[in-house]
Design a protein around this nucleic acid. Sequence first.
DNA 1: AGCGCTACTGACAAAAATGTCGATAAGAAA
DNA 2: TTTCTTATCGACATTTTTGTCAGTAGCGCT
Lengths: 203, 203
Amino acid sequence: MSIRKNKQPRIRRTPEESRANILSSAERLLTEQGPQTLRLADVAKEAGVANATVLHHFGTIDGVHTALMERMIAELVEKVMAIELTEDTEVSRAQALTTLFEAFEQKQASKLAAWLELTHQAGRLTNVRQVVRDVTRKKFHHQNVPEDVVEDVMLVCITLALGVGLFGQTLSEMLGKPPSRAKEMALSVLMLGLRQLEAERKG
Amino acid sequence: MSIRKNKQPRIRRTPEESRANILSSAERLLTEQGPQTLRLADVAKEAGVANATVLHHFGTIDGVHTALMERMIAELVEKVMAIELTEDTEVSRAQALTTLFEAFEQKQASKLAAWLELTHQAGRLTNVRQVVRDVTRKKFHHQNVPEDVVEDVMLVCITLALGVGLFGQTLSEMLGKPPSRAKEMALSVLMLGLRQLEAERKG
DNA sequence: AGCGCTACTGACAAAAATGTCGATAAGAAA
DNA sequence: TTTCTTATCGACATTTTTGTCAGTAGCGCT
């Protein structure tokens, strides 16, 4: 046993960097280990800092939770707003839907949503309506479809994207199918169903 | 202040009754307050018994969690297996789907599933595949559709039912629509989409 | 009534999680 | 180099949560 104390030199970050480091670690824990591991010691360890450092930047462990939610929500909104839908062809629509589904599974946004739902914090998503409105206007302005119909369609798409993002992979594998099968099937059914719905509306 | 100690007489139940009482209370907490309130003291208080009583029956708080999961899973499986699908008309199919969707929202099965998914306990659902197989055989034996196609269809239906059950109400209300709107839209799209899928397969 | 079994309980012990505080050291600026 | 600011940390204090134990009480049985 060496007597020498071999302490690592401290890493001193800017407050912004430090907060980002901690939140990234927390996000990793949330998506890889589940919400119950979002404890002070776990987060601090994952971020490679002392417990007190986490509290220095966020006040309480709840502060970490809140900040994490806000960061993940902002990321998701950005991703959704970036979806292209310049023309309204089948192909373009399929691409947009695929991107939407991926947005909800890639950054583990579905897990965030489930966490909010289970903890009754969904109220934090105050801007969902506004985002949907914005998307409706910006992406669908060139079509002659009533806004509330567009909103209904988006409601379905988001609901299904969340379901697929959260459960799709696990369910697919449970049934002995490739992990993306649920997503593929959902996309097919959604495309076909929406086309029919549109046909009915027009006809 | 009265000096007299006014203790309630003890309620002595059979072990089965007592376990059921505790699990029912835990289920109520899970669905109404979220998983983080499934703590020993909370469960005991909700059940109206002492902390030690809960431990007497379940050993640890984790034992309560496990037992609760198993009970809710069994309930759900029973509900799903009870779905009628004697003939394959549009009406019958719509009824079956409606029942399925309701099974996933009524008994808060979606919340259970989300809890399992977030806590990486989905492995507990070892019998999902068997259930799907059973349903496939029992409910669809009269059709001439390959079994794996039926399984794909069930995969979509379950995924969407879970998504709607967990997020449907909240999302609908966020968009200023009646709480059942997401479910209705999902059902419509699903029915239309499945019909088209079938048409494509045949044609 | 008396007895045995055990579900039940309060009080206490142990463990885990959160939060506080004074000291330290990294980096910028003088 | 010296000074100043403050991000960082270890040690400790507090609170929360879980688990133990010995005794109590409800209920069936004789």
